[in-house]
Nucleic acid binder design. Structure first.
Lengths: 243, 243
DNA sequence: TGTACATCAGTGAACGCGCGTTCACTGATGTAC
DNA sequence: TGTACATCAGTGAACGCGCGTTCACTGATGTAC
């Protein structure tokens, strides 16, 4: 990278960082380019050298956020024994929650209320957004291939849902039965729901041991798939045994 | 109600209505009192006769929203045969989803991202916020009393969670076993998560038959509690049998 | 039943602040011969 | 190796717009005797 290119990339990173900081105190639709320019020590119009508009900056932040979440989850899950499917699910789930707690405002940007009047361009946000669910899909495929999924336990699907879920499976060239894939989608939705519920404050005065509660839910979800009890991998943190 | 009182109450209702309309195009932190005054045909300072500040208006909207959701769910659930526990759960769940779809911006205000720098005063928002979960609790209590809950199916809880959930039970003077109550909380979280997931656009290009998918999830949750198959109540819409 | 007074709704001006975006420009940094 | 030129970063002024909140005020509506 040539020096000018490098400097340019650095400045864009600084802009994104300052924007992320702004999200601590204002909502996504109130991001202030003038504020960023001020923090950067530049005149307001200068930011337009780096960013087309406020909306484009939002798009950048969203794509970035999905990527950061995705790589955190991928890294955590990759460190688990490949045949310990329950452990892989628990670890992935905990990684999502940990990232959300570390980056609550970025999490809210990705999974909270949509910004009125703004729609992220799908081409640029969809691929990074798929990284995290793909970790779950990978786990499911491996577990099913190893016979570690209780196929009979999954509730059968109506026709229209079979088709919907089947399409997802086709796109990804999977040979996981549709009902199992559907349970996987349900698991993914629950992970998202549980993290949002906690982060958005709805667990206040209901449950204090939030980490324990999250783990409990993960175990229930793993049971739902019929994944066998986690094995204790050498050198890794002990996962609590199922039941 | 004396005429002046009445006129005052009417104006407050109009203000709340206009504020709710604003939420279609701007986020909650961008509600404009000046805009409301304009729509009302008043000078900007006049709104302060009715509302202390923008934050207080937000609080009003939130409390109102929980109340409106709560009474929709209560009304729907109350119309179901009291001994049809699965039917009661399905109906309550569908009522939540239906309300959310009819009032997406209000729903986002209640269950979406928190507004940075704003915290709703608990005294005024908590009671209305509890109405919907209390419908679920009531259902659970009745089902357990009737022996319609599969207690052994509920995953046992760790000590700290037993205590957490036990406290909730104590406050409400329930005699439902903690693990069952915990499954109830999980159900409530999943309902919230599933509605948000759909409403916030994360189901796009994954599942088309959104109503069918939501019902499927409700059935899985009912299975998790071990609720017996729904019975066909005379005159009410047929619920699909479980498995 | 009529009058005096209190209450309240709404006015209009002002304070002090913010924003996104465009435009013609200066001056430094890099590139090609 | 040195010079001419192109590229790019950053400037400063301007356009046109928005906001929440306070304050002293007018005038209508209600209340008490």
């Amino acid at each position: 990278m040539r020096p000018r290119e490098q400097a340019r990339a650095d400045t864009i990173e600084r802009i994104k960082g300052l924007a992320r900081e702004q999200l601590h105190s204002v909502g996504p639709s109130e991001l202030s380019l003038r504020g960023i320019a001020r923090d950067l020590g530049l005149v307001s119009s200068a930011v337009y050298r780096y960013v087309e508009s406020r909306d484009q900056l939002l798009t950048l932040l969203i794509a970035d956020g999905y990527d950061r979440l995705g790589s955190a989850v991928e890294a955590a899950e990759a460190a688990v024994d490949r045949t310990d499917f329950r452990g892989r699910l628990l670890t992935a789930g905990r990684a999502i929650r940990a990232w959300a707690i570390d980056h609550p405002f970025e999490y809210a940007l990705l999974f909270g209320s949509p910004v009125p009047g703004y729609a992220a361009p799908a081409e640029v946000t969809v691929p990074p957004a798929q990284r995290t669910p793909l970790v779950l899909v990978g786990l499911l495929v491996d577990a099913h291939a190893a016979g570690a999924v209780d196929v009979d336990r999954a509730r059968p699907l109506d026709r229209s849902l079979r088709d919907d879920v089947g399409t997802v499976g086709l796109d990804l060239v999977l040979d996981v039965p549709a009902p199992v894939l559907a349970t996987g989608v349900l698991v993914w939705i629950h992970l998202f729901g549980a993290v949002s519920f906690e982060l958005f404050g709805h667990l206040h005065n209901v449950i204090d041991d939030k980490a324990g509660w999250f783990d409990h839910q993960l175990e229930v979800l793993a049971d739902l798939l019929g994944l066998p009890p986690a094995r204790r991998a050498r050198g890794s943190r002990a996962a609590r045994p199922a039941r």
